[in-house]
Design a protein around this nucleic acid. Structure first.
Lengths: 198, 198
DNA sequence: CCTTCATTGTACTATTCGGTACATTATGTA
DNA sequence: TACATAATGTACCGAATAGTACAATGAAGG
């Protein structure tokens, strides 16, 4: 039959969006098929282990994105302050100011948590550790850096929840701004608009 | 047949736990029946509109609990500082240091959000406003009080996610301690253990 | 005792679920 | 052009889904 999608990687993005919107159990094969444009035949050809493998592929893709856009800059950026600022910006865009759910965060509070607990754990561990290392490079003590980075990561998750509950993206951006204030020593703090306008 | 459960209110608690563990869609009538000890006949006798009505009953019960244990003390407590401390303690116990999911928070990031958006919104609005009023009574400016209360409420939600993801209740209690530090003027800050030990 | 009605278990419906089997088609390669 | 194989649509499966219908049961009140 006609070959519609040549690459398996082409379907990861729509797959991720479906899981975000419907959760793992709520994402039926009918919905997945519609979103990807693939029938069951193709779906099980690319993902022989079904939905579980699809979710793993999505989680792996998410990990790669965060590795490139968040973890690596925080760990190895020459300037810790600008790395923190940049990753906060990247995350704001990624989560569409709270309009887009964090799939990993949602997984952490679902009953499906156990099936993907490794990936969920790794996602947050990496994030906290990377941010912590940037804060240490700022000259902070290890313990303070850990406390701050945990606070930052959980605040982003909470900001998604609250901004969605109140249906107000401003809640998310306010939370990010507050994070900037806490994480970047005052004097290096510039508003997001200014930083991008220059 | 045998009358096992006389009161409709008797099943709200197990019902809430089922929805917490499985979500709205994941909570099948089979699971609900097992958890409550009721068959479909009784379930639909008490809740003619099915699962939707069950969830509404649970949300209403949750609202009542927070009204009594959180909102009211924050709004009307004579001492704002001790009210904040007490509600932080109550919430820590309620969420079992992150071991227990916040049903309303989970609803906010699920696809079922729209069906219960009113209750979800109200839950967070009330919380933020009540905390804000306590912070104003401390003598803070309205805008600072709003910013702080939003930050506190979202931090609690994020703390649940992160502590579950890392499977570490200490993450939750650390976040609560940090909240105490931010919300209660230093000098009135006493560790949880000390406050309860006196 | 007898009536009344809240309560309950069970059988049933129609639909959807994830997953399998397989024949068919298209495409790249020789 | 012929072949191998990757890709695909469809028919199908058993299980589970939410919800309905209803008859049977029990307790409470007169």
């Amino acid at each position: 039959m006609a070959r519609i999608v040549a690459e398996r990687s082409d379907v990861i993005a729509p797959l991720a969006e479906v899981f975000r919107e419907h959760g793992f159990e709520g994402a039926s094969l009918a919905i997945i098929g519609k979103a990807t444009g693939l029938g069951k035949g193709s779906l099980y050809h690319f993902f022989p282990n079904g939905k579980e493998e699809m979710m793993q592929a999505v989680l792996s893709e998410i990990h790669q994105w965060f590795e490139d856009a968040v973890y690596a800059p925080l760990r190895a950026g020459q300037d810790a302050n600008s790395a923190i600022n940049d990753t906060l910006d990247a995350v704001t865009v990624y989560f569409k100011s709270g309009g887009r759910v964090c799939l990993v965060g949602a997984l952490a509070v679902s009953n499906t948590r156990d099936r993907f607990s490794l990936a969920v754990r790794e996602y947050f561990v990496q994030w906290v550790e990377a941010l912590q290392s940037a804060l240490v490079r700022q000259g902070r003590a290890t313990s303070e850096a850990l406390s701050l980075s945990e606070d930052a990561v959980l605040s982003i998750q909470g900001a998604i929840i609250l901004s969605r509950a109140l249906n107000d993206p401003a809640v998310f951006t306010r939370a990010i701004d507050q994070l900037r204030y806490r994480l970047v020593p005052s004097g290096n703090v510039v508003s997001g608009a200014l930083r991008h306008g220059k």
